[in-house]
Each structure stands twice: as C-alpha cells, then as structure tokens.
Nucleic acid binder design. Structure first.
Lengths: 202, 202
DNA sequence: CACATAAAATGAGTGCGCTCAAATATATTG
DNA sequence: CAATATATTTGAGCGCACTCATTTTATGTG
C-alpha cells in the first residue's frame, strides 16, 4: 500500500498535481509569458497566492512542468539511440530526439533555456539534478556499449565522457535556440564536434 | 576625425553611455534584482521610459554592462593562459581567470547565466556573438600553439576544438554557479574533461 | 467532543518592469 | 526664417508576479 498519507499530505499532493497540470496546459496553449499566474490558479481551482507555496516563482513552475515531460523524452531518446550503430550516430540520434521535442514549442524552449541558466530553488535544483543524472546515465551506457564494441578505448572514463558529450550538445542547443545557428548548421556542428571528442585532438 | 555625428547621434551615444554606467554602478552596488529601472533612470538623468529605448528589457541592460567588462576579462584570461605551457594548463588558466571574475559578484553572475540562456534582443545577440568570437579566437590560438609544439595533431580543426573546449567549461560553470559543484569539484572536473577532449575517447 | 496548536489557503494589496499617447527636440525644406 | 516633418524623450498609468495579515482546515490532547 502506497498511501500512508495524512489528509493534509493527500491534499497537498493532489493540489500540486492540479497546479502543474494547469500550468502545463496553459503554457502549451498560450505560451509561457502570456500565461498569468492568476489563470493558472483559476484553472487549478486554487487562490492566487497558493501557487507560490508550491513554486517560489512562476519560473520555478516551468521546471516542474519540464521535469515530468523531459524524463519521458530522455527515455525515448535512449530508445532512438539504440537503433543506431557507432557512438557518434547513437549520440546524434539521442540529442536529435531531444531537439525535436524542443522544436515543438520554441517559445517554451526559450523560456526553459533561460531558466536552466541558473536554478535557484532547492526543489528545482533537485529535479534538474535527477534529470541530469538520468540523461548522463544514458550517455554513459552508450559509451560503455562503444567500449564493448572496441570503438572506444577501454580506459576512457564514463562519467567525464558522458558530461563532455552533453556539454557539446548543450552549447549548440543554446546557439540553435538563440538563433546563432540554423538547424542545418546545428546538425553539422553537433556531428563534427562529437566526432572530435571521440578521436581527440592529438 | 572620428566624429561625423549629428547632434542627435551625439546625444544618443552620450545617453547610452550614461545609462550603461549607471546600471553597472547600481548592479554592482545593490545587486541586479534590487536595482530598479527607476533608479537607473535617475542616476543616468533620463526619464523612466527612456531606458527602454536603449535596452528592450532590464535584462538586456545586463548584457550591455557585461559585454564591455567581459571583453577585458577575456584579454586578461588570454594573457594568463600564455604564461603556462601545455594546452590543458593553458586552457585551465584561461577559464580560471574568467571564473575568478564571476566569483567577485556571484548574484550578478547568476543573473548573467540566466540571461545568456536565451538572448532575445538583436543588439544583445550581436554583442554576445562578438564576445564569443573573441573568446573562441583566443582558444583557437592556444590550440594552434599546441599544434606547433606537436602536442596536438596537425589535422585537428581549430574552430571545433575551440568550441568544444568552451562547451566543457560552460557546462561546468553553470554547475558551479547553480551550486551543483563546489569550487574544488569544478577545478577537478574541468581539468579532467579538458584532458579527455585532448586525448579523445579512443 | 471541546479545545489548543499548527499547517495551509486565501485574496486584497504592493512594487516594479514596461507601455504609449503626448510633448519636446532636432532635422529638412521652400 | 518659418513651417513642416521626423526622431527622441517623457512620465503617468497598467498589468502582472509576488507578499502577508487573516481565515480556514487539519492534527494532536485530556
């Protein structure tokens, strides 16, 4: 039995769920900036002030919405990666899946990138950390697979490799979303730089 | 003779300078969030609304302030890098100089990271692009030096190498500023991952 | 069950970023 | 030098994120 929850705790969990769902619907439908916290409160059937005992700021709400969706996207991305061979093709497929998700709602992706630039709230930080752990875990598994296939040296440390792959992706994602790169340039630069990491500079 | 400026253009340049200077002083002294655009306007001796014909948002003002300072910091960082030997030590010295600058005012650095997550304004985007070009140019020169010294393969492409070095730094900087890493962990991870890029995964 | 204590929700109020119609300063033209 | 056109500034006003004193709801106790 999962529920050893007091009535208070039940109410909080349920209310939290309503708020996040309402925020997700409104952000998707009207855009992040165009959505007011009042509207979210009304849609979730709580008072205006209640929002802010579940998320310190409107921005923090975005992290809550994003976390749930992104956990699924990462799973899908890992599935897409495994249907390819070769570490570069696999990681490209992995990241392209995530990019495709962001491209469905560019304004929301912009707001998200902005928010991820600095994460203030403790709960939000924990959620992002959880997501990053999952994501880096997927990349590490891909690197480990490449090791087994002899594509990558047996001494390559997994965690730094996963971090570096992600770092390259993340920089280019920012450039894509901020408009420094178009999609074709992004694809080319991503593949080039991931390949460079694989081979190294020397 | 530099000034083929009409009276209008003179006024604009001068006013812009006053606004940026006032913003810099107040951001440094009171912090970014605690500073109101009213205060900036008063300090710059312009009306409240005038600010917003020079920067579309308060956030955009931060980019204006940041750009000028950062151009100098990058120069200093390059100087620091050249006093080391070996590409990893050089790039570490380069990035540590920039980190030291951010550490002088952490709240401001947080605001900045947030703002860089997505850059909306056209002028701001151009300023960031200019800064990035300069920064990546420095890194490319360091890689080229390592090539001459035989530390790095002659076929390594400079631009992707510079981008990847920066990508690794930038990810860790975000982790440091958001509190995922402390300074010691940052130093270690940065060195490890830059080294990994140099040697490659295979 | 009555009472006390703590936790959570409420919503009117507040301050600030930003807008925009009107005013002012600069440029242009006959 | 008027007179007209255009660019820039102005600041009162607006909408929204967020606060906080008050009220409501849940839990613990005799």
């Amino acid at each position: 039995m999962a529920a050893a929850l007091s009535k208070r705790e039940q109410n909080k969990v349920e209310k939290r769920g309503r708020i996040i769902a309402a925020a997700r619907a409104l952000f998707t439908h009207k855009g992040f900036e165009a959505t007011t916290t009042q509207e979210i409160a009304e849609a979730a059937d709580v008072a205006a002030g209640t929002i802010f005992s579940y998320a310190r700021t409107k921005d923090d709400l975005l992290i809550l919405v994003f976390h749930d969706e992104m956990m699924d996207v990462v799973e899908r991305a890992y599935g897409a990666a495994k249907s390819h061979v070769g570490l570069v093709d696999q990681t490209v497929a992995f990241f392209e899946t995530i990019v495709a998700y962001h491209e469905r709602d560019l304004p929301l992706a912009h707001a998200l990138m902005r928010q991820l630039g600095f994460v203030g709230g403790a709960e939000q930080r924990a959620l992002v950390a959880e997501l990053m752990t999952r994501l880096l875990g997927c990349l590490a598994k891909l690197v480990e697979g490449a090791k087994s296939a002899g594509e990558v040296g047996a001494t390559s440390p997994l965690a730094p490799a996963a971090r570096s792959l992600f770092a390259i992706y993340y920089l280019h994602l920012g450039a894509l979303l901020s408009g420094y790169l178009d999609r074709a340039q992004f694809d080319r630069a991503l593949r080039t730089d991931l390949g460079l990491l694989l081979r190294g500079l020397d």
